[in-house]
């Protein structure tokens, strides 16, 4: 990593509209940082000139060197102004930061990915990794929840993965019109029907905190123990290097001890209100 406190300039190579409020930026480095390298689960700090900086998980393929992909949801001042960025514009990048999904540890086991909403973005690099190294893993189940059918992120990719015989993909939405022939209901309901062995599975979970709370219970019900469940936490990450104090979660700095935590290691504070 170059200086962790100073953004490096990256040029936007492509902007893709994903959903009404969500877009994907493909970035290429223009400065000295040509060798950008990351692991699934990590995030970057994206700087929009003069507006500010936000932590955004990396959602591209770690196997593709020299490019970094971010899917951004416009929910704040900085991300909303980023929605106006176009091909050829520049953003600053600091990173990559944070802990990673346990891709090595999961080798030889079933992998169950439970995610909701924009939570699919930080898990996409893990999915790419599993698919690129398919032989190293047991059964693979991707369970995804969204608000409505038109809020399903990466829909084409989910359909492509779903078409593979060696991956089971189930999506569900909170409500749908009658043109939707898929599942309607909460994502936890997909677990009993997921094609995996809970006693030999590693679970990767990312979504709103409430969703993760219920998902952990539902995974336990399927026999997945807390030391095999990994969750990606969201807190207010500002400096990303453990200096600013904002992202503390109990004794952890989510920016450098997380965002990915093995659940049994945060279990004692996970359900404490306002921690």
């Amino acid at each position: 990593m170059a200086d962790p406190m100073t953004p490096e300039p990256f040029r936007i190579e492509r902007v893709s509209r994903e959903l009404a409020d969500t877009f994907t930026l493909d970035l290429v480095p223009v400065g000295d940082k040509r060798d950008f390298d990351f692991q699934p689960g990590q995030f970057n700090m994206l700087y929009h000139f003069g507006v500010g900086e936000v932590p955004i998980s990396i959602s591209g393929d770690a196997g593709t060197k020299g490019r970094v992909t971010h899917t951004v949801r416009a929910v704040g001042t900085v991300t909303e102004s980023m929605a106006d960025l176009k091909k050829g514009d520049m953003v600053g990048v600091r990173g990559p930061f944070g802990s990673t999904w346990p891709m090595e540890l999961a080798e030889g086991h079933d992998v169950v990915i439970v995610t909701g909403g924009i939570g699919l973005a930080p898990l996409r690099p893990a999915i790419y990794h599993v698919l690129a190294n398919r032989g190293k893993y047991g059964r693979v189940a991707i369970l995804y929840g969204a608000r409505t059918p038109s809020d399903i992120l990466y829909r084409e990719e989910l359909e492509a993965w779903s078409a593979r015989l060696d991956v089971s993909v189930e999506a569900t939405v909170d409500t749908a019109g009658t043109d939707w022939t898929g599942n309607v209901g909460v994502v936890t309901k997909l677990l009993p029907r997921g094609n995996f062995d809970g006693r030999d599975a590693v679970a990767l979970v990312c979504g709103p905190e409430v969703m993760m709370r219920f998902t952990v219970h539902a995974l336990n019900d399927q026999g997945v123990t807390n030391d095999c469940i990994f969750v990606s936490m969201e807190r207010n990450m500002k400096c990303a290097v453990g200096f600013c104090g904002h992202c503390q979660f109990g004794s952890r700095f989510v920016c450098k001890d997380g965002p990915v935590f093995r659940f049994d290691q945060i279990e004692d504070i996970f359900r404490v209100k306002g921690i």
Partner: peptide, 20 residues
């Protein structure tokens, strides 16, 4: 009970945009 619990979670609109 499971359906009631699920209905309540759906009511939360967890994936909705908090600013919308």
């Amino acid at each position: 009970a499971e359906r009631l619990g699920a209905a309540r979670l759906q009511l939360l609109d967890l994936y909705g945009n908090p600013r919308a």
